[in-house]
Design a protein around this nucleic acid. Sequence first.
DNA 1: ATCACTTAGCTAATCGATTAGCTCGGTTTG
DNA 2: CAAACCGAGCTAATCGATTAGCTAAGTGAT
Lengths: 343, 343
Amino acid sequence: MSTIKDVARSAGVSTATVSAVINDSAYVSPALRARVLAAIRELNYSPSLAAQNLKRGRSQLIALVVADLANPFFSRVVWAAEAAVAAWGYSLVVFNSDEKPEAEQRILSRVRMLSCDGVLLVPVGDSTKHLQREPDERPLPTVLFGRTVEDDRSDTITIDNISAARQATEYLLDLGHTRVGSITGPLHLTTGRGRLDGMLTAMKARGLAPEPRDVRSGEFREDAAYSVARSLLEQPDRPTALYVASGLMALGAMRAIADLGLRCPADISIASTDTIPGIGGLRPRLTRTEHPLVDMTNEAVRLLVDRIRRGAEVEQRNIVFQPSLVVGDSCAPVGLRDSQSPR
Amino acid sequence: MSTIKDVARSAGVSTATVSAVINDSAYVSPALRARVLAAIRELNYSPSLAAQNLKRGRSQLIALVVADLANPFFSRVVWAAEAAVAAWGYSLVVFNSDEKPEAEQRILSRVRMLSCDGVLLVPVGDSTKHLQREPDERPLPTVLFGRTVEDDRSDTITIDNISAARQATEYLLDLGHTRVGSITGPLHLTTGRGRLDGMLTAMKARGLAPEPRDVRSGEFREDAAYSVARSLLEQPDRPTALYVASGLMALGAMRAIADLGLRCPADISIASTDTIPGIGGLRPRLTRTEHPLVDMTNEAVRLLVDRIRRGAEVEQRNIVFQPSLVVGDSCAPVGLRDSQSPR
DNA sequence: ATCACTTAGCTAATCGATTAGCTCGGTTTG
DNA sequence: CAAACCGAGCTAATCGATTAGCTAAGTGAT
C-alpha cells in the first residue's frame, strides 16, 4: 500500500497539502490539487484508517453487543443495524454476550481497546453495567437497546413491553378465555418482567388472575419454551390460552402443542410478542404484537451517532416505541374449544 | 485514557520496558516488572489498539461479508463466526453485500481501509471478485465461504451441492415420485447451479427428467420462493414432489402450499437443502439435507487465521463438506397422494 | 519604497505504541 | 588486570496520518 508520503513525493508537494486535498481542510490551488489527485489515482492510494484513527482518536467502528446472536430476533437487529451504521459511514463490529454478564464485561473492555466510537448494547443481567464506567475516563457513547438496567445514564430505545403484553392478553380475554397461562422470559430482565406485568394487569382489569402453575418462566429460547410449554400443557387441567413472551418461544410452544397431539387454536390459543423473521410462513399464523424493529434500530443508530458527534452536550433520551397487535389465526373463541376437544 | 508514557513515568522506567512487560517480548527483572504491573493496574491502563495496529500493521479485525444478512442461514453463519473469531482473539466486522456486486466492491475496499487482517467472503455474482486484487499490493487473506467464483486463488469452504441435491431428490424418487419439480436458486451462483445439476443427475440416473415448466428459479428468499411456488403449483397439472434449493425457500414453498389449500405431504412432498434455525418447529418436519454449518464456519475461520499468520507460504486449500439427509415428514409415497387427494 | 497584512504551502511535532541499536555496569577469561 | 563479552534497560526512530505554526511571496495603503 502506498502512503501519504509516496503521494506527496510523486506529486511534488508536502504531506500537509495531500492531507488538505483529501480532507478538504484547507484551500489548495487548482493546479496542485489536480497533481495530487492524479498521484492518488495513479498510486491507488487510500489513507490508512489505522493512522487516521490514532491521530483523530476515533475508529469509524460501532460495536453491537447482543444478548443472544442465535436468537433470530437479534439477527434481525444485526441486519438492520449493519445497514443503518453503514449509511452513517461507520462499520459494525458484532459481539455476542450470550446472556452472560462476565462476557459482557469482557466485550465492553474489548470495545474500549478497539476504541470503537460507540456501542449499541442489549444489556445482560442487572445494573452491573455501569461499573465499567471509570470516573476518570470519558464515557463510551452508549445506547441501550430493548432492555434497560437500573440507574444508567445512557440513551435507551425500548418497546412498551407492558402494553405489548396487555394488548395480546386482552385479545385472548376478548375471545372469552378466562383460564389464561403464560410462558414468560427471565424475570430479572425488563423485557421478561414487563411482559408478565402487562399480562397480569390485563387480567386484573377483568377481575381475573392466572393460576400460579399456569405461569412459567424460562429463557428466551426455543428449546426452553418447548419444555416449559410441555410441562405446562401436560397438566391434567390446563389453560385454554397462552400468552408467550417472545416469538422464538412461541415457536417452541407451538412445537410442544403439536407434539402433545393438541391443536392450535382449537385446543389452545396462543398469542405472543416480538415477531421473528420466517415466522410469517408458520401455520397457523401467530397472533402477536410486533415491534417496529427496523425503525427502532434506525433510531438507536441515529441517537448513537448524534451522541458520538455532540458528546455530553445532548441530554439523555429514552425513547419508547409502541408495539402493534397483528391478528393471525392462532387464537379461537373459548367456546370452540369445548365443542371440538372436550376435556 | 492513560498511555504507555504515563505508565512509564509512574513506574520510573522507559516505555520500552513497559512494552516489554506487556508483550513479554524481553526479559525484565522481577522488581521492575512488578513496579510496571502495579502502575498499569493503578492507572487502569490498556494499550491503544489503534497505536498497536499502526505499528504492527494489523488490526485484530476479521471481516465477514455475507450475501444476504436477512437470510437466517447467514445469520447463523454470523453467530458461528463471531464465536470462532473471538476464540482466536479477533473481532468480527459484519457487512452485507445484499447480493449486489457493486456493494461487494465497496465493502472490500472499506475492508482494506480498515486494514482488516482477513475476510470471510460469501462472494456475489461472477468472478468479478479478483479484480480488487491489485498486482502491487499484498493480497488480503481471504476465505470464500459457501460459494466460489471463477479462477480465484483464495481458500474455499463449500458444501457438496450436487450431492445434497442428489440425496434429497433420490429420497423423493425412492418414494415413487416421477413427476418431480424444483425451485432452484439463481443459476449463476454455484449453490444454485450445483443443486439443480444434482437434482437433474439424480433423475437422469433413473431415466427421468423434470418437465421444463416444473423447474423454476428465483432468488434465495422466502417471498421469491412463495410466488414461484404458487405459480408452479397453480398449474392444472402439477408435480407430486418438489426439491427446493434452500431452507428459506422451503418456508416460502410451504406457505404457498398452505395458501393454495394443498397439504404437505399428502398433496405435495417437499425436500430441501440447507436448514435454517427455527425450522425445527415447523410442522410437518422438513425432509432436508443439512449443512454442518458450525463446523464449516469454524474451519473457515481456522483457515483464515492460518493464512493471516503464515501468509502465502501455505498453498491454496479447497475444503468441501458433505451434507447429510435428515428425514422429516414432509414427503409421502406417491401412492398416498392419489388416495387422499385425487387430481 | 516601506510596512502591514494575507495566504498557499511547507516544516515538524504529535497521536501511542514497537523495536533496532546503544549504554553501562558486571562477569568471565587468558 | 585488561580485554572481551553479556544483558538489563534506555534512547530514539518509526508506523501513516493530522495540524499548529512558520515562511515567503503577493497585495495594497501610505
